[in-house]
Design a protein around this nucleic acid. Structure first.
Lengths: 160, 160
DNA sequence: GTCAGTGCAAATACTTTGCATGATA
DNA sequence: TATCATGCAAAGTATTTGCACTGAC
């Protein structure tokens, strides 16, 4: 799906919800799909402030991300390091995350076997499962390399 | 492990960290192991306030839970409903959670196959995995029954 | 023209912290 | 007695909200 098509979807979504397309909403939306990184509310706010274009207040960033999440355009990811970041969804398969506890890098992976086992467990508990969140945490290879080089890998692992 | 043995461990942990055993820490510790429910900071604070014993301020509850978590006596669980709750660990096998989006009930389950697949995926990403968090969410059987009886199950599922 | 959206600042909720006082080892 | 812990209130931090004004449709 190209950017125009996605944006069209957004416009349709807004229409369906009786919401209006504003310059602010457009800027947040476009930025969310232009970046291929996970971003926090604050980061989005800073990006928009730094770039050219109609001003977007922090409150509007919060409000717009909420709309985008509700519409299924972006998804919130809890990093486990006390922050929530967002990622855009369309054109991406569902995936889970692995977060580096040192540098914060977020890697993505998919595993249909894990998904199937989740469904099995939910069923066994008598739950109707509507969603899940799986986050692995640890040390990414580049941080591990650096720690190893410094001879600090063992001690770091002990303190995690 | 009985309660006395666990408490002894706590005392040893405090000693090892050059921390002192105080009436407040003892109350928080004992309550955490006396209940078999997940509890929030606020809930722990309310419990202790309502029961007999040396007063424990909210700040001390925060500080003590942090110590207990660091010592591996309790674990924080993000419920995905915007709250963090704690559960005691000793005497419990590792497990994951399934949270009801209606009533907040938290069920627990274990699945070694899932754990193994997680390790496999972490390895494939080149990560050293130190932990993980898996949370399923959905509707528990009793909420589902009630919604069904009210004819609201379908519409509720659509809005989740 | 009407209704929704925006910015701002105030309010909220949650958690942490500085400091004077009190208790433990 | 030397630390460490506690309670309190103040300060953070992150997010939400009321309101007057602006702008989209």
């Amino acid at each position: 799906m190209n950017e125009t098509a996605i944006e069209k979807r957004f416009e349709e979504f807004l229409k369906g919800e009786n919401l209006k397309m504003t310059p602010q909403r457009r800027r947040v939306f476009e930025k969310a799909f232009a970046v291929h990184d996970h971003f926090s509310v604050e980061r989005m706010y800073e990006w928009l402030k730094a770039e050219e274009g109609p001003a977007v207040s922090r409150a509007t960033v919060y409000r717009t991300l909420e709309v985008l999440e509700r519409g299924g355009f972006i998804e919130a990811v809890e990093t486990g390091r006390g922050e929530v970041v967002y990622e855009h969804i369309l054109g991406h398969e569902h995936h889970d995350h692995m977060v580096c506890r040192i540098c914060g890098t977020i890697a993505e992976f998919q595993d249909e076997q894990i998904e199937a086992l989740q469904r099995k467990n939910a069923k066994a508990l008598g739950f109707i499962m509507t969603g899940h969140m799986l986050r692995l945490s640890g040390i990414c290879s580049s941080c591990a390399d650096q720690l190893r080089a410094e001879g600090k890998l063992e001690s770091t692992l002990e303190n995690l």
